[in-house]
Design a protein around this nucleic acid. Structure first.
Lengths: 121, 121
DNA sequence: GCACTAATGCACTTCCATTGCATGCGTTAA
DNA sequence: TTAACGCATGCAATGGAAGTGCATTAGTGC
């Protein structure tokens, strides 16, 4: 089961919602998928993405994806056209300056727009 | 009613959830507050913030807060300690580079950590 | 006062995230 | 061989937030 879910995530190049997984595995129960994902999260196999659609998505952690590190520098791109969210691990987030007294531990950056597939390039 | 809500938002220096407003106005109905906020949003009086807690928050737009512009460069700080989210309008977001084929329309940047109140400075 | 519009309140629905409880299955220990 | 245990799975139910339809009330202009 977990292997199947892992492969599903590996094939998908985009972040998926729980519903996506649910639809892909009709046989399995919501709860199982949910808990599997949670397990993956704990083991730092996948990471959670909040792209502003209100639905949490998940994506496999790749090389260079240091989710476990506190100063996580993730960049996610959400397409307003196809509604897909991709993980741009190659693009690092520039250092963000915060005012005095503030301590930065984590940065979440979501860029919205049109993705490469939809823009036609 | 709307004036009361406006004043409430003005007093608060942090972004608030619908529940926060609801608690502050026991007399009023949820729907009224909800629709009032929506109206404010349309009129660009407040803007919505998604700080990753899963609950959408709202904050007054200030001078220099160009929510209405597509290339909205907002920086929000979410404190992991007191769970409050503040709007750092003074801090602009640096230009984000996206890969070829991607078109950036909107940027959402949330920094998490410890705020000035909680860090003791 | 009358009519019209805007604002408010109530009830209901939907959607997603999460949890409690029961079941099944494989492994270990008596 | 069997009893006990841990773990994965499934079903059902809960809770919280967002959103909507409809009736009622409050204003506003005439």
């Amino acid at each position: 089961m977990r292997l199947l879910i892992y492969r599903f995530l590996a094939e998908k190049q985009v972040a998926v919602t729980l519903s996506d997984i649910e639809n892909a595995f009709d046989k399995a129960d919501r709860t199982t998928l949910y808990r599997t994902i949670k397990t993956f999260e704990e083991k730092a196999i996948v990471h959670q993405i909040d792209d502003g659609t209100g639905i949490t998505k998940y994506a496999l952690c790749e090389k260079g994806c240091n989710c476990e590190i506190e100063t996580d520098l993730h960049l996610h791109f959400h397409c307003n056209n196809c509604n897909e969210t991709v993980c741009l691990t190659a693009h690092k987030i520039p250092q963000i300056k915060v005012p005095k007294g503030f301590v930065s531990e984590n940065v979440n950056l979501v860029v919205k727009g049109i993705c490469d597939k939809c823009s036609g390039h």
